[in-house]
Amino acid sequence: MNQKITKVLMVVATCLCIGYFSGIITRQSITDWYPTLEKPFFNPPNWIFAPVWTTLYILMGVAAGLVWNKMDSDRINVRKGLQFFAIQLGLNFLWSYLFFGLHNPLLALAELILLWLMIFETYVIFKRVDKFAGILMLPYLAWVSFAGILNAAIFWLNK
């Protein structure tokens, strides 16, 4: 298999694994705790989250794979971009633990602000290395922006 495709598939698989383990953390709370919370009128139905996150993990994995494939031509930006990518991926997982595992919307919201900043910085660097990779990060940035508003509303309604 082409080495470039292998890199993309490796990062996509890593992102999907992070999503899978995040799902394990959320599964119990989705049935026990989350239904007890007051939610804003714009709260999406639960079934929407799995396909949206799966799509986002695939898009961000492709983006990181495309950037990784530019290592020979822009080593400094590729390394920096992939470092930010790894940090935001870890923060992505941590948010699930804070919100659904610890049942702490306020702490999750504070962490989500840091996550958003890391995604934005990843986007900026990815765009510098590969414009298409940057574009692939935009739906993720938009969804996390929406998630931040939703998280803030849930905190506010349940404090």
Rank of each mutant, 00 (worst) to 15 (best):
I58C: 07
T6M: 10
K4H: 11
L107A: 15
K4T: 09
S22I: 00
H103M: 02
K131A: 14
E111V: 02
F146W: 00
F120C: 08
V11H: 06
K4S: 05
F41V: 15
A133T: 01
I135L: 14
N2Q: 07
A110P: 10
F132H: 13
K70E: 14
W156H: 15
R75H: 15
F99P: 07
V124C: 13
W53Y: 13
M60A: 11
Q88K: 11
F85L: 13
W33F: 13
L141W: 07
S96W: 00
M71N: 09
F146Q: 04
W47Y: 14
F85G: 13
S145A: 05
I24H: 01
F84A: 13
Y97H: 11
K7D: 10
W95T: 07
W33R: 01
I24E: 02
W116C: 03
I135V: 15
V78T: 10
M118H: 11
D32V: 10
K7L: 06
W53G: 04
L89H: 12
T122L: 05
Y123K: 10
S73E: 15
L114G: 12
L114T: 12
I135T: 14
I119L: 03
W95F: 08
V144G: 11
T26G: 00
F99Q: 09
P105R: 02
I18T: 01
